[in-house]
Design a protein around this nucleic acid. Structure first.
Lengths: 192, 192
DNA sequence: ACCAAAAAATGACTGCAGTCATAATTGACC
DNA sequence: GGTCAATTATGACTGCAGTCATTTTTTGGT
Protein backbone atom coordinates (compact mmCIF):
# COMPACT_ATOMS: atom_id res chain seq x y z
CA UNK A 1 0.00 0.00 0.00
CA UNK A 2 2.25 2.73 -1.24
CA UNK A 3 -0.76 4.99 -1.56
CA UNK A 4 -1.75 4.86 2.07
CA UNK A 5 1.68 5.61 3.47
CA UNK A 6 2.18 8.45 1.07
CA UNK A 7 -1.13 9.95 2.04
CA UNK A 8 -0.21 9.82 5.69
CA UNK A 9 3.14 11.39 4.96
CA UNK A 10 1.60 14.22 3.00
CA UNK A 11 -0.99 14.91 5.67
CA UNK A 12 1.65 14.98 8.35
CA UNK A 13 3.89 17.18 6.25
CA UNK A 14 1.07 19.66 5.78
CA UNK A 15 0.36 19.74 9.48
CA UNK A 16 4.01 20.04 10.43
CA UNK A 17 4.74 22.91 8.10
CA UNK A 18 1.43 24.61 8.77
CA UNK A 19 1.96 24.66 12.52
CA UNK A 20 5.52 25.82 12.12
CA UNK A 21 4.33 28.71 9.97
CA UNK A 22 1.42 29.49 12.29
CA UNK A 23 3.81 29.77 15.20
CA UNK A 24 6.15 31.96 13.18
CA UNK A 25 3.70 34.36 11.63
CA UNK A 26 0.36 33.77 13.29
CA UNK A 27 -2.50 31.76 11.86
CA UNK A 28 -4.11 34.57 9.93
CA UNK A 29 -0.93 35.72 8.25
CA UNK A 30 -0.25 32.33 6.72
CA UNK A 31 -1.85 31.51 3.39
CA UNK A 32 -2.71 28.03 2.24
CA UNK A 33 -0.44 28.49 -0.75
CA UNK A 34 2.44 29.29 1.56
CA UNK A 35 1.88 26.07 3.41
CA UNK A 36 1.74 24.02 0.25
CA UNK A 37 4.89 25.62 -1.13
CA UNK A 38 6.66 24.77 2.11
CA UNK A 39 5.54 21.17 1.58
CA UNK A 40 6.47 21.15 -2.09
CA UNK A 41 2.94 20.40 -3.25
CA UNK A 42 0.32 22.30 -5.23
CA UNK A 43 -2.26 24.48 -3.58
CA UNK A 44 -5.17 22.33 -4.62
CA UNK A 45 -3.62 19.30 -2.97
CA UNK A 46 -4.10 20.90 0.42
CA UNK A 47 -7.83 20.69 0.01
CA UNK A 48 -7.67 16.99 -0.73
CA UNK A 49 -6.52 16.58 2.85
CA UNK A 50 -8.30 19.34 4.73
CA UNK A 51 -11.65 20.71 3.54
CA UNK A 52 -10.90 24.13 5.02
CA UNK A 53 -7.79 25.89 6.20
CA UNK A 54 -9.18 25.94 9.73
CA UNK A 55 -9.46 22.17 9.84
CA UNK A 56 -5.76 21.88 10.50
CA UNK A 57 -6.43 23.45 13.85
CA UNK A 58 -8.89 20.75 14.79
CA UNK A 59 -6.18 18.18 14.17
CA UNK A 60 -3.80 20.14 16.33
CA UNK A 61 -6.16 19.52 19.20
CA UNK A 62 -5.80 15.79 18.67
CA UNK A 63 -2.16 16.07 19.63
CA UNK A 64 -3.07 17.93 22.79
CA UNK A 65 -5.72 15.34 23.53
CA UNK A 66 -2.96 12.80 23.98
CA UNK A 67 -1.29 15.24 26.31
CA UNK A 68 -4.50 15.42 28.33
CA UNK A 69 -4.45 11.69 28.87
CA UNK A 70 -0.85 11.87 29.99
CA UNK A 71 -1.67 14.58 32.47
CA UNK A 72 -4.64 12.69 33.83
CA UNK A 73 -2.41 9.68 34.20
CA UNK A 74 0.24 11.70 36.01
CA UNK A 75 -2.05 12.77 38.82
CA UNK A 76 -3.28 9.58 40.37
CA UNK A 77 -2.65 10.18 44.06
CA UNK A 78 -4.74 12.21 46.48
CA UNK A 79 -8.41 13.09 46.58
CA UNK A 80 -10.40 13.63 43.41
CA UNK A 81 -10.74 17.25 44.34
CA UNK A 82 -6.98 17.72 44.42
CA UNK A 83 -6.42 15.65 41.33
CA UNK A 84 -8.83 17.75 39.30
CA UNK A 85 -7.11 20.89 40.51
CA UNK A 86 -3.73 19.58 39.45
CA UNK A 87 -5.01 18.48 36.08
CA UNK A 88 -6.55 21.85 35.40
CA UNK A 89 -3.38 23.52 36.55
CA UNK A 90 -1.27 21.59 34.08
CA UNK A 91 -3.74 22.11 31.26
CA UNK A 92 -3.79 25.82 31.89
CA UNK A 93 0.01 25.94 31.84
CA UNK A 94 0.07 24.25 28.47
CA UNK A 95 -2.63 26.51 27.11
CA UNK A 96 -0.81 29.64 28.21
CA UNK A 97 2.55 28.38 27.07
CA UNK A 98 1.36 27.77 23.53
CA UNK A 99 -1.19 30.52 23.69
CA UNK A 100 -0.47 32.07 20.30
CA UNK A 101 -1.36 28.87 18.50
CA UNK A 102 -3.84 27.40 20.92
CA UNK A 103 -6.20 30.30 21.06
CA UNK A 104 -6.92 29.82 17.38
CA UNK A 105 -7.30 26.15 18.05
CA UNK A 106 -9.74 26.97 20.82
CA UNK A 107 -11.66 29.23 18.52
CA UNK A 108 -11.95 26.45 15.99
CA UNK A 109 -12.87 23.91 18.63
CA UNK A 110 -15.73 26.14 19.74
CA UNK A 111 -16.84 26.77 16.20
CA UNK A 112 -17.02 23.13 15.27
CA UNK A 113 -18.79 22.34 18.52
CA UNK A 114 -21.44 24.97 17.84
CA UNK A 115 -21.88 23.85 14.26
CA UNK A 116 -21.57 20.25 15.42
CA UNK A 117 -19.94 19.34 12.17
CA UNK A 118 -18.61 16.27 13.86
CA UNK A 119 -20.63 14.19 16.30
CA UNK A 120 -17.78 13.88 18.72
CA UNK A 121 -16.22 17.24 19.46
CA UNK A 122 -12.99 17.71 21.31
CA UNK A 123 -14.87 19.34 24.13
CA UNK A 124 -17.03 16.28 24.51
CA UNK A 125 -13.94 14.09 24.54
CA UNK A 126 -12.47 16.21 27.30
CA UNK A 127 -15.70 15.84 29.21
CA UNK A 128 -15.72 12.08 28.73
CA UNK A 129 -12.18 11.81 30.03
CA UNK A 130 -13.16 13.62 33.20
CA UNK A 131 -16.36 11.65 33.43
CA UNK A 132 -14.61 8.30 33.46
CA UNK A 133 -12.13 9.65 35.99
CA UNK A 134 -14.99 10.53 38.30
CA UNK A 135 -16.81 7.29 37.62
CA UNK A 136 -13.78 5.32 38.80
CA UNK A 137 -13.68 7.37 41.96
CA UNK A 138 -17.30 6.53 42.58
CA UNK A 139 -16.41 2.87 42.72
CA UNK A 140 -13.83 3.70 45.36
CA UNK A 141 -16.75 5.10 47.33
CA UNK A 142 -14.81 8.34 47.75
CA UNK A 143 -17.34 10.17 45.68
CA UNK A 144 -21.05 10.61 46.39
CA UNK A 145 -23.04 8.35 44.11
CA UNK A 146 -26.07 10.60 43.91
CA UNK A 147 -24.49 12.82 41.25
CA UNK A 148 -24.07 11.61 37.69
CA UNK A 149 -20.39 11.71 36.74
CA UNK A 150 -21.40 13.07 33.38
CA UNK A 151 -23.02 16.15 34.83
CA UNK A 152 -20.21 16.84 37.24
CA UNK A 153 -17.76 16.57 34.38
CA UNK A 154 -19.89 18.99 32.38
CA UNK A 155 -19.65 21.57 35.13
CA UNK A 156 -15.90 21.19 35.39
CA UNK A 157 -15.40 21.52 31.66
CA UNK A 158 -17.70 24.51 31.68
CA UNK A 159 -15.59 26.20 34.32
CA UNK A 160 -12.38 25.46 32.49
CA UNK A 161 -13.44 26.74 29.11
CA UNK A 162 -15.36 29.69 30.36
CA UNK A 163 -12.35 30.81 32.34
CA UNK A 164 -9.82 30.51 29.57
CA UNK A 165 -12.17 32.15 27.10
CA UNK A 166 -12.93 35.11 29.24
CA UNK A 167 -9.53 35.67 30.79
CA UNK A 168 -7.03 34.63 28.19
CA UNK A 169 -6.39 38.29 27.50
CA UNK A 170 -5.15 38.60 31.05
CA UNK A 171 -1.44 38.10 31.20
CA UNK A 172 -1.51 37.17 34.86
CA UNK A 173 -1.35 33.40 34.78
CA UNK A 174 -1.53 32.97 38.50
CA UNK A 175 -4.74 34.92 38.68
CA UNK A 176 -6.40 32.68 36.12
CA UNK A 177 -5.55 29.53 38.03
CA UNK A 178 -6.80 31.22 41.17
CA UNK A 179 -10.09 31.95 39.44
CA UNK A 180 -10.48 28.35 38.40
CA UNK A 181 -9.48 27.16 41.85
CA UNK A 182 -12.05 29.31 43.57
CA UNK A 183 -14.78 28.14 41.25
CA UNK A 184 -13.82 24.54 41.91
CA UNK A 185 -14.01 25.18 45.65
CA UNK A 186 -17.54 26.49 45.34
CA UNK A 187 -18.64 23.54 43.27
CA UNK A 188 -17.11 21.10 45.67
CA UNK A 189 -18.54 22.59 48.80
CA UNK A 190 -21.83 23.73 47.35
CA UNK A 191 -23.36 27.16 47.35
CA UNK A 192 -25.95 26.68 50.03
CA UNK B 1 -26.84 67.59 13.22
CA UNK B 2 -28.09 66.00 10.08
CA UNK B 3 -24.94 63.97 9.88
CA UNK B 4 -25.39 62.17 13.19
CA UNK B 5 -28.97 61.14 12.57
CA UNK B 6 -28.14 59.96 9.10
CA UNK B 7 -25.31 57.84 10.40
CA UNK B 8 -27.57 56.23 12.92
CA UNK B 9 -30.19 55.58 10.29
CA UNK B 10 -27.69 53.97 7.96
CA UNK B 11 -26.28 51.78 10.69
CA UNK B 12 -29.71 50.65 11.71
CA UNK B 13 -30.72 50.06 8.11
CA UNK B 14 -27.69 47.86 7.59
CA UNK B 15 -28.46 45.85 10.68
CA UNK B 16 -32.13 45.51 9.86
CA UNK B 17 -31.59 44.32 6.32
CA UNK B 18 -28.64 42.16 7.27
CA UNK B 19 -30.55 40.30 9.93
CA UNK B 20 -33.53 39.87 7.65
CA UNK B 21 -31.30 38.36 5.01
CA UNK B 22 -29.45 36.19 7.52
CA UNK B 23 -32.73 34.74 8.69
CA UNK B 24 -33.88 34.16 5.14
CA UNK B 25 -30.76 32.60 3.66
CA UNK B 26 -28.40 31.90 6.53
CA UNK B 27 -25.44 34.03 7.55
CA UNK B 28 -22.91 32.42 5.25
CA UNK B 29 -25.07 32.66 2.16
CA UNK B 30 -25.46 36.41 2.42
CA UNK B 31 -22.79 38.60 0.90
CA UNK B 32 -21.92 42.07 2.09
CA UNK B 33 -22.81 43.44 -1.32
CA UNK B 34 -26.27 41.89 -1.06
CA UNK B 35 -26.82 43.68 2.22
CA UNK B 36 -25.69 47.02 0.86
CA UNK B 37 -27.87 46.67 -2.23
CA UNK B 38 -30.85 45.98 0.02
CA UNK B 39 -30.00 49.20 1.86
CA UNK B 40 -29.44 51.17 -1.32
CA UNK B 41 -25.84 52.00 -0.49
CA UNK B 42 -22.47 51.08 -1.96
CA UNK B 43 -20.50 48.09 -0.80
CA UNK B 44 -17.67 50.17 0.60
CA UNK B 45 -20.04 52.08 2.82
CA UNK B 46 -20.75 48.94 4.80
CA UNK B 47 -17.19 48.92 6.05
CA UNK B 48 -17.48 52.47 7.29
CA UNK B 49 -19.95 51.14 9.81
CA UNK B 50 -18.74 47.63 10.56
CA UNK B 51 -15.07 46.70 10.25
CA UNK B 52 -15.95 43.12 9.37
CA UNK B 53 -19.05 41.33 8.19
CA UNK B 54 -19.13 39.36 11.43
CA UNK B 55 -19.34 42.48 13.52
CA UNK B 56 -23.01 42.81 12.75
CA UNK B 57 -23.51 39.68 14.79
CA UNK B 58 -21.93 41.26 17.83
CA UNK B 59 -24.45 44.07 17.61
CA UNK B 60 -27.25 41.55 17.37
CA UNK B 61 -26.23 40.38 20.80
CA UNK B 62 -26.77 43.86 22.14
CA UNK B 63 -30.46 43.53 21.34
CA UNK B 64 -30.63 40.25 23.18
CA UNK B 65 -28.75 41.78 26.08
CA UNK B 66 -31.74 44.04 26.66
CA UNK B 67 -33.89 40.96 26.59
CA UNK B 68 -31.71 39.43 29.29
CA UNK B 69 -32.36 42.34 31.57
CA UNK B 70 -36.08 42.03 30.97
CA UNK B 71 -35.98 38.36 31.83
CA UNK B 72 -34.00 38.96 34.97
CA UNK B 73 -36.50 41.61 35.94
CA UNK B 74 -39.41 39.26 35.27
CA UNK B 75 -38.27 36.67 37.79
CA UNK B 76 -38.09 38.50 41.08
CA UNK B 77 -40.01 36.18 43.38
CA UNK B 78 -38.78 33.00 45.03
CA UNK B 79 -35.36 31.80 46.07
CA UNK B 80 -32.27 32.72 44.11
CA UNK B 81 -31.92 29.12 43.13
CA UNK B 82 -35.35 29.09 41.53
CA UNK B 83 -34.90 32.46 39.93
CA UNK B 84 -31.68 31.43 38.25
CA UNK B 85 -33.39 28.31 36.94
CA UNK B 86 -36.22 30.34 35.48
CA UNK B 87 -33.87 32.86 33.93
CA UNK B 88 -31.83 30.13 32.30
CA UNK B 89 -34.99 28.46 31.12
CA UNK B 90 -36.19 31.59 29.38
CA UNK B 91 -32.80 32.30 27.88
CA UNK B 92 -32.59 28.81 26.51
CA UNK B 93 -36.03 29.14 24.96
CA UNK B 94 -34.98 32.31 23.18
CA UNK B 95 -31.75 30.77 22.03
CA UNK B 96 -33.48 27.74 20.61
CA UNK B 97 -36.29 29.75 19.07
CA UNK B 98 -33.89 31.93 17.09
CA UNK B 99 -31.32 29.22 16.80
CA UNK B 100 -30.52 29.71 13.11
CA UNK B 101 -29.37 33.24 13.69
CA UNK B 102 -28.16 33.01 17.26
CA UNK B 103 -25.74 30.18 16.79
CA UNK B 104 -23.74 32.39 14.48
CA UNK B 105 -24.03 35.15 17.00
CA UNK B 106 -22.78 32.78 19.66
CA UNK B 107 -19.88 31.80 17.48
CA UNK B 108 -18.94 35.42 17.04
CA UNK B 109 -19.39 36.16 20.72
CA UNK B 110 -16.95 33.37 21.54
CA UNK B 111 -14.51 34.51 18.91
CA UNK B 112 -14.39 38.07 20.10
CA UNK B 113 -14.08 36.90 23.69
CA UNK B 114 -11.11 34.71 22.85
CA UNK B 115 -9.47 37.45 20.82
CA UNK B 116 -10.58 39.96 23.42
CA UNK B 117 -10.93 42.56 20.73
CA UNK B 118 -13.13 44.49 23.10
CA UNK B 119 -12.45 44.82 26.80
CA UNK B 120 -16.03 44.16 27.72
CA UNK B 121 -17.36 41.07 25.99
CA UNK B 122 -20.99 40.08 25.96
CA UNK B 123 -20.15 37.06 28.02
CA UNK B 124 -18.66 39.26 30.70
CA UNK B 125 -21.74 41.45 30.64
CA UNK B 126 -23.92 38.40 31.15
CA UNK B 127 -21.74 37.42 34.04
CA UNK B 128 -21.94 40.86 35.57
CA UNK B 129 -25.71 40.83 35.37
CA UNK B 130 -25.83 37.57 37.27
CA UNK B 131 -23.19 38.78 39.68
CA UNK B 132 -25.18 41.85 40.72
CA UNK B 133 -28.27 39.68 41.03
CA UNK B 134 -26.43 37.45 43.47
CA UNK B 135 -24.88 40.37 45.29
CA UNK B 136 -28.31 41.80 46.02
CA UNK B 137 -29.39 38.47 47.39
CA UNK B 138 -26.40 38.49 49.69
CA UNK B 139 -27.67 41.66 51.30
CA UNK B 140 -30.97 39.89 51.92
CA UNK B 141 -28.89 37.39 53.87
CA UNK B 142 -30.48 34.61 51.82
CA UNK B 143 -27.17 33.80 50.26
CA UNK B 144 -23.99 32.65 52.01
CA UNK B 145 -21.53 35.52 52.16
CA UNK B 146 -18.45 33.37 52.03
CA UNK B 147 -18.62 32.98 48.26
CA UNK B 148 -17.77 35.84 45.95
CA UNK B 149 -20.75 36.64 43.73
CA UNK B 150 -18.42 37.05 40.85
CA UNK B 151 -17.12 33.52 41.04
CA UNK B 152 -20.56 32.01 41.48
CA UNK B 153 -21.74 33.95 38.45
CA UNK B 154 -18.76 32.66 36.51
CA UNK B 155 -19.73 29.08 37.26
CA UNK B 156 -23.31 29.67 36.21
CA UNK B 157 -22.32 31.34 32.95
CA UNK B 158 -19.89 28.51 32.34
CA UNK B 159 -22.65 25.96 32.73
CA UNK B 160 -24.98 27.86 30.45
CA UNK B 161 -22.56 28.37 27.59
CA UNK B 162 -20.96 24.99 27.81
CA UNK B 163 -24.35 23.36 27.62
CA UNK B 164 -25.64 25.29 24.66
CA UNK B 165 -22.37 24.90 22.82
CA UNK B 166 -22.16 21.20 23.29
CA UNK B 167 -25.79 20.31 22.90
CA UNK B 168 -27.25 22.79 20.47
CA UNK B 169 -27.18 20.08 17.83
CA UNK B 170 -29.61 18.14 19.95
CA UNK B 171 -33.13 18.89 18.88
CA UNK B 172 -34.55 17.84 22.21
CA UNK B 173 -35.08 21.12 23.98
CA UNK B 174 -36.41 19.57 27.16
CA UNK B 175 -33.32 17.48 27.54
CA UNK B 176 -31.07 20.51 27.33
CA UNK B 177 -32.92 22.32 30.06
CA UNK B 178 -32.80 19.17 32.12
CA UNK B 179 -29.03 19.06 31.68
CA UNK B 180 -28.66 22.61 32.84
CA UNK B 181 -31.03 22.01 35.71
CA UNK B 182 -29.10 19.02 36.96
CA UNK B 183 -25.83 20.89 36.81
CA UNK B 184 -27.35 23.74 38.76
CA UNK B 185 -28.54 21.29 41.39
CA UNK B 186 -25.06 19.95 41.85
CA UNK B 187 -23.57 23.41 42.16
CA UNK B 188 -26.16 24.44 44.67
CA UNK B 189 -25.91 21.44 46.89
CA UNK B 190 -22.19 20.84 46.45
CA UNK B 191 -20.42 17.72 45.31
CA UNK B 192 -19.12 16.51 48.63
C1' DA C 1 5.78 -5.44 -19.07
C1' DC C 2 1.38 -3.53 -20.61
C1' DC C 3 -3.33 -1.79 -19.87
C1' DA C 4 -7.40 0.21 -17.97
C1' DA C 5 -9.70 1.93 -14.02
C1' DA C 6 -9.33 4.26 -9.70
C1' DA C 7 -7.10 7.61 -6.86
C1' DA C 8 -4.60 11.68 -6.21
C1' DA C 9 -2.27 16.04 -7.81
C1' DT C 10 -2.56 20.19 -10.18
C1' DG C 11 -3.19 25.17 -11.04
C1' DA C 12 -6.26 28.21 -13.61
C1' DC C 13 -10.46 30.01 -12.16
C1' DT C 14 -14.42 31.98 -9.27
C1' DG C 15 -16.43 34.52 -5.65
C1' DC C 16 -16.28 37.28 -1.87
C1' DA C 17 -14.28 40.08 2.12
C1' DG C 18 -11.97 43.87 2.89
C1' DT C 19 -8.93 48.20 1.07
C1' DC C 20 -8.14 52.61 -0.65
C1' DA C 21 -7.72 56.51 -3.73
C1' DT C 22 -11.13 59.49 -5.38
C1' DA C 23 -15.66 61.82 -5.47
C1' DA C 24 -19.62 63.67 -3.27
C1' DT C 25 -21.83 65.68 0.78
C1' DT C 26 -22.08 68.29 4.89
C1' DG C 27 -21.53 72.04 8.22
C1' DA C 28 -19.15 76.14 9.99
C1' DC C 29 -17.87 80.59 8.98
C1' DC C 30 -17.89 84.82 6.50
C1' DG D 1 -25.17 81.88 -0.88
C1' DG D 2 -20.24 81.16 -1.56
C1' DT D 3 -15.93 78.95 0.17
C1' DC D 4 -13.37 75.50 2.31
C1' DA D 5 -12.13 71.78 5.53
C1' DA D 6 -13.86 67.69 7.44
C1' DT D 7 -16.60 63.86 7.03
C1' DT D 8 -18.78 60.18 4.51
C1' DA D 9 -19.81 57.50 0.17
C1' DT D 10 -18.16 55.05 -3.65
C1' DG D 11 -16.72 51.13 -6.54
C1' DA D 12 -12.62 49.51 -8.92
C1' DC D 13 -9.11 46.79 -7.08
C1' DT D 14 -6.36 43.22 -4.31
C1' DG D 15 -5.60 39.01 -2.03
C1' DC D 16 -6.89 34.77 -0.55
C1' DA D 17 -9.98 30.56 0.33
C1' DG D 18 -11.96 27.17 -1.88
C1' DT D 19 -13.56 24.71 -6.64
C1' DC D 20 -13.14 21.86 -10.49
C1' DA D 21 -11.97 20.16 -15.07
C1' DT D 22 -7.83 18.18 -16.53
C1' DT D 23 -3.53 15.62 -16.01
C1' DT D 24 -0.52 12.47 -13.60
C1' DT D 25 0.32 8.57 -10.67
C1' DT D 26 -0.84 4.15 -8.60
C1' DT D 27 -2.66 -0.34 -8.52
C1' DG D 28 -4.33 -4.82 -9.65
C1' DG D 29 -5.11 -7.89 -13.29
C1' DT D 30 -3.24 -10.31 -17.34
Amino acid sequence: MLRETKKKQTKEAIMKHAIKLFKQKGYENVTVEEITIACGIAKGTFFNYFPKKEHILLHVTDTYMDLLNEIVHKHQEGTLRDRISHIFHDLLQIYLKHFDLLRFTLEETMRSAIRSETGSTNIKRFQETLSTLIEKEKNNASFPKRWESDKVAAILVGIFFHTIINWSSDVDKEKMMEMIQQQLDIVWEGIE
